[in-house]
């Protein structure tokens, strides 16, 4: 059974979103379920800092030995950081999807938009 931390929010595209900071910044990654389904991640393409992203649009991709999966912006905002460590070691996504394997940080255009995401219980329902 895949791990679904209760303190995160989720999207239907199997991404997790950390509670916004006071400055309205959220950290984003892919879920344990997603990394397990992908298998060994070998390459990650992510937007550069400064990129404006719109909710539910494709902004990058995660490639494993066997397939490729799009990265979606979970919410609308501006990318303010990308996880540079993934360039050297994409397998962090497999070994620590909710920690060192995070993808990007986004400054939300509207901090209240966070409340539209799925709760852990709702996401659990989705992945069974």
């Amino acid at each position: 059974m895949s791990s679904i931390p209760a303190d995160l929010s989720y999207t239907a595209e199997h991404e997790w979103v950390l509670t916004p900071t006071a400055g309205g910044v959220v950290r984003v990654g892919i879920t344990d379920f997603a990394q397990d389904a992908l298998g060994d991640v070998v390459y990650v393409q992510m937007p550069e800092a400064g990129t404006e992203v719109s909710a539910d649009t494709v902004v990058g991709e995660v490639e494993s030995t066997k397939s490729v999966s799009d990265i979606y912006a979970p919410l609308t905002g501006t990318v303010t950081a990308r996880n540079e460590a993934l360039d050297a070691d994409p397998s962090l996504i497999n070994s620590d999807p909710y920690g060192d394997g995070w993808l990007v940080e986004i400054t939300l255009a509207d901090a209240a938009s966070y409340s539209t995401l799925l709760s852990a219980a709702e996401y659990q329902e989705k992945v069974g």
Binding site: G39, D40, V42, S64, T65, K66, S91, N94
Partner: peptide, 11 residues
Amino acid sequence: PLQYDGGGVVA
């Protein structure tokens, strides 16, 4: 089998 638990393609 495509891959095993605790393994994975790379391992």
